[in-house]
Design a protein around this nucleic acid. Structure first.
Length: 581
RNA sequence: CGGGGCGUAGCGCAGCCUGGUAGCGCACCUGCCUUGGGAGCAGGGGGCCGUAGGUUCAAAUCCUAUCGCCCCGACCA
């Protein structure tokens, strides 16, 4: 491609809304163009990079037996009502009616549609297992799109679905997709960290998120530096240091605390550390109020609490509801609560005295003792791990909390969508008996992956693409418009263009502009021809990621490039592969 | 949805407080010149000042409403 003919319009200055590196460089480099909040057009450079990523995904999924399909974005609401998601999902799911008043949704994933296909065509155990995938537009009306392509409302997602005769077969298949994911990210130049994720009813090792460690990530995960245990913060389990029981339990007493509500205020008021308090938070779980009690130095994990309660909807209880129940926000307490479900965190043990709310305005209770002043009927791990908690897996090291971008998610779905009360998908086994189909689902956000690569691979001057997903492998910068220089550039362009994708900067711009643009758009290998080099029959080769520069005789150029590209190709060796049995 | 910030040319900004012919840099167009790190000279095109009301002889500027965008938080099947 000749730059002079290309639809590439780089910006000297970034639009002020851009703050994260990937957002800034995608805009400046003419990769994307914003249409509205969270909605972007992919310009030619961005489009090409995304197509490269999709190519890698296709290769890896085809290699483990996947078959690509295409499914509609507009889905009949009826299908989504069958699985319950029409009702369970909030405003993120766009619903509308067509001209005949029939209800539809815009698909945010395709479990319903693909399961409907499976229901139609999977009849026999001979049809299983099977894996179908699609790379298509998904629509989610996100509350807050942000950071360019990292979180958007319309995006391409690779979604894969596997169907199995039973759980054992899914367990056998799962490592293959897990390993394919590791290869996909590695081939895009990223080191991904698979972490245990919340898998709801499935439990165990049923779900993994593949994280890229990044300061601009919006997710947090826990990592044990000693044993390698890693998990989503919401799900991660840590060892909670217990408080030592007091020798002589003092009697509970009321303390007037006008306007003192938060743990921080209370610490000041009582002159006691965080862990001496009980933090009581009121939720509404599927319509019923629930109190969650954790120690003052912990926070409630909504995920763990919802999992424990088996609740679909879990929200903070509105102040109004609390007052109706005779509860006072800011002074909540497990003491003296009747007729309401109260869940205690496992950190709250007997023997130690606590300071709790008084369940009355402007009042707290001192010297509260579990078992004496309130009953602990229900105990569960409902608190979030903290940086520095000890690892529950190896018992030794202190857990670290990292920020990251979720690149992909693998999930043993089980029978959530194939169950009788959902879409009811069965097949006949060898004995002619009906059996329930078991599913797995596996997603990757394609544009987010592009943005993640830039988050990882950039410097002050711009992007530094891995050769595997760069929109062009080579940029040929012609510096000087002397006939000999032009002739040499043209010669190289046609000769190298046969084997590589090459962007030939033939513009009449000054050298500074051309070189800055080459850096900005991050093409991995830059070739320069100039008057000086032309005279000696040489070409300059610069590698964008490393900054290495070498001068190469034109006659040796192809062999030299061959070696360079071989060296630059991302490796898929030594990844934390799962045993495929 | 809560908190904060911003809407003036494609991009970055000034002008607004104190109302009076809409400006600067980059980009773009023409010509000359120039080719190793965002060159030079000369000429030029482009804006209902987000939108709608109001105040006023007069509104980018003051008032009201509304829409949009960004950041932090909540939320994220």
């Amino acid at each position: 491609m000749r730059y002079s003919q290309a639809f590439i319009h780089t910006l000297f200055e970034a639009p002020k809304e851009a703050e994260t590196p990937s957002h800034i460089f995608l805009l400046r480099g003419s990769f994307v163009y914003p249409l509205a909040a969270g909605l972007y057009s992919l310009l030619p450079l961005g489009h090409r990079a995304v197509e490269k990523i999709k190519g890698i995904i296709r290769e890896e999924l085809d290699a483990i037996g996947g078959m690509e399909v295409t499914m509609p974005v507009v889905n009949p609401a009826e299908l989504w009502k069958k699985t319950g998601r029409f009702f369970n999902i909030g405003e993120e799911l766009i619903r509308f009616k067509d001209r005949r008043e029939r209800e539809f949704v815009l698909a945010m994933t395709h479990e319903e549609v693909v399961t409907d296909m499976a229901k139609q065509f999977v009849r026999s155990y001979r049809d299983l297992p099977v894996m179908l995938y699609q790379i298509q537009t998904k629509i989610r009306d996100e509350a807050r799109p942000r950071a360019g392509l990292l979180r958007v409302r319309e995006f391409q997602m690779k979604d894969a679905y596997s169907f199995h005769p039973d759980f054992a077969d899914l367990d056998v298949y799962y490592p293959r997709i897990f390993n394919a994911y590791l290869r996909i990210f590695a081939r895009c130049g990223l080191k991904s960290t698979p972490i245990e994720a919340d898998s709801g009813i499935m439990g165990g090792s049923g779900s993994h998120e593949f994280m890229l460690e990044s300061a601009h990530g919006e997710d947090h995960f826990v990592l044990c530096p000693a044993c390698g245990y890693s998990a989503n913060t919401e799900k991660a389990v840590g060892v909670k240091a217990e408080r030592t029981p007091c020798a002589e339990p003092l009697a509970m007493e009321e303390v007037s605390t006008p306007g003192v509500k938060t743990i921080a205020d209370l610490m000041g008021f009582f002159g006691a550390p965080e862990k001496h308090f009980l933090k009581t938070v009121a939720y509404i779980a599927d319509g019923s109020p629930v109190l969650a009690v954790v120690r003052g130095d912990f926070n409630v994990s909504v995920t763990k609490l919802a999992g424990h309660l088996k609740a679909v909807h879990l929200d903070y209880a509105p102040e109004k509801t609390l007052l109706e129940k005779g509860l006072n926000p800011g002074f909540l307490s497990p003491v003296g609560v009747d007729g309401m479900r109260v869940v205690f965190d496992t950190a709250i043990t007997g023997g130690a005295l606590y300071i709790a709310g008084g369940n009355a305005p402007d009042m707290h209770l001192k010297n509260v003792l579990a078992g004496r002043d309130f009953e602990v009927k229900e105990r569960a791990d409902i608190s979030e791990v903290r940086e520095g908690d000890r690892c529950a897996a190896c018992g030794g090291a202190e857990l670290r909390i990292k920020r990251g971008i979720e690149l992909g998610h693998t999930f043993k779905l089980g029978t959530k969508y194939t169950a009788a009360d959902s879409m009811d998908v069965t097949y006949l086994d060898g004995a002619g008996a009906p059996n329930r189909v078991v599913m797995g689902c596996y997603g990757i956000g394609v544009e987010r992956l592009l943005a993640s690569v830039i988050e990882k691979w950039h410097d002050e001057g711009g992007m530094q693409f891995p050769v595997s997903i760069a929109p062009y492998q080579i940029i040929l910068s012609q510096l000087g418009n002397q006939p000999e220089v032009v002739a040499m550039a043209e010669r190289l362009y046609s000769k190298l263009g046969a084997a590589r994708e090459i962007l030939y900067d033939d513009r009449g711009e000054s050298p500074g502009v051309k070189l800055k643009d080459a850096d900005l758009i991050g093409i991995p290998v830059r070739l320069v021809v100039s008057r000086k080099l032309e005279k000696s029959g040489e070409v300059e080769i610069k590698i964008r990621q490393t900054g290495e520069v070498k001068i190469c005789p034109e006659s040796e150029l192809e062999a030299t490039l061959e070696a360079i590209f071989k060296r630059l190709a991302p490796s898929i060796e030594n990844l934390p592969y799962m045993d495929e049995g």
